[in-house]
């Protein structure tokens, strides 16, 4: 596969981008202050001739925490791929950081789905973070004492401190636990001071305490460092009270807005085209009852669960 973002590696020349203060912003980025980080208008996508979703409108500003929700196979990860320019939008308009998708990837931190390093991976966490900073540069740095190298080292220490990984960053990453690896990978995604973080199910395969700790970390980064975050999630509950906005994909359509607007019985009933009820527990957790399965993908496997609804299964949006 040819990655269109290969074209957009202008930032590869420098090592550490300066801290983002309004004054130090390059002239090219001097657009209106509240220019959206992501703007989708009537966006649609097709995979292998099948329309996954269409008519998606979304506008995400700087420092907003947005979740992409929906049942399995609805095209949540595909949304991330579209935003990265790895997959073209079939219809509508998609703008990422004021450019076409793939043109501004050096300003995006990306965390793909379900990555883990097995114990035989004998490379330190700090080296994995460092690859996020300068791993795409050609040649081998031979002189390790320059000012640029010092700045790079400082930035790596800083970002490892930020995610709270200082105690295990110098161990081989394969020997770290899933939560520790996820924090190091978030540090890797953050090391270049991106303006946008795209996270594909970062809480997957983490236990509950780690889920809430990693969520709190992402939320803190999002609001403190003013980084817009788009997170694909299959369960909204661990992230619910951190979210500014959700994009709910289902049945080829989409609804976006604040969680209170979108995850409601009327909105989801309209989206699914079938009666759906959203229940709220006393602790504020949400359960979506009666939503049908994702089209085509799992119909035979989960046929018996249709009558009960997905509340019994854990793998559903807001489940």
């Amino acid at each position: 596969m040819l990655h269109p973002m290969a074209k957009a590696r202008t930032a590869a020349e420098g090592t550490v981008p300066p801290p983002r203060a309004p004054a130090s912003e390059p002239p090219a980025a001097l657009t209106v202050a509240d220019d959206p980080v992501i703007a989708l208008r009537g966006a649609a996508v097709r995979v292998a001739g099948r329309a996954l979703w269409s008519g998606v409108d979304l506008c995400i500003g700087a420092g907003e925490f947005v979740a992409v929700l929906g049942p399995n196979g609805v095209g949540k990860s595909t949304m991330i791929k579209v935003l990265l320019g790895m997959l073209p939008a079939a219809d509508g308009e998609v703008r990422v950081l004021g450019a076409r998708p793939g043109q501004a990837n050096h300003r995006i931190g990306y965390l793909p789905q379900r990555r883990s390093f097995d114990p035989s991976m004998r490379i330190r966490g700090v080296d994995v973070v460092r690859l996020g900073l300068d791993g795409d540069r050609w040649g081998i740095p031979l002189w390790p004492f320059g000012a640029r190298r010092r700045a790079a080292r400082r930035r790596i220490e800083e970002v490892i401190e930020l995610v709270g990984a200082s105690t295990y960053a110098y161990r081989p990453i394969g020997t770290c636990s899933g939560g520790e690896q996820q924090r190091l990978l978030i540090a890797q995604a953050l090391v270049r001071r991106p303006e946008l973080l795209l996270l594909d199910e970062p809480l997957d395969s983490l236990d509950l305490p780690n889920q809430s700790a990693v969520t709190a970390l992402i939320s803190r980064i999002c609001h403190q460092e003013n980084v817009a975050v788009v997170m694909v999630a299959h369960d909204v509950n661990p992230i619910l009270h951190h979210l500014d906005r959700v994009l709910y994909l289902a049945e080829g359509g989409a609804a976006s807005g604040t969680p209170e607007e979108v995850i409601t019985s009327p909105t989801l009933t309209r989206l699914y085209g079938t009666p759906v009820e959203v229940l709220r527990t006393s602790a504020g957790r949400l359960a979506v009852i009666g939503q049908p399965e994702a089209p085509a993908l799992h119909t035979d496997r989960h046929a018996d669960r249709h009558a009960v609804g997905p509340a019994a299964g854990g793998d559903h949006a807001a489940g």
Partner: peptide
């Protein structure tokens, strides 16, 4: 995956 995302 991340390397590909970074244009490697």
């Amino acid at each position: 995956q991340v390397a590909a995302g970074r244009g490697v």
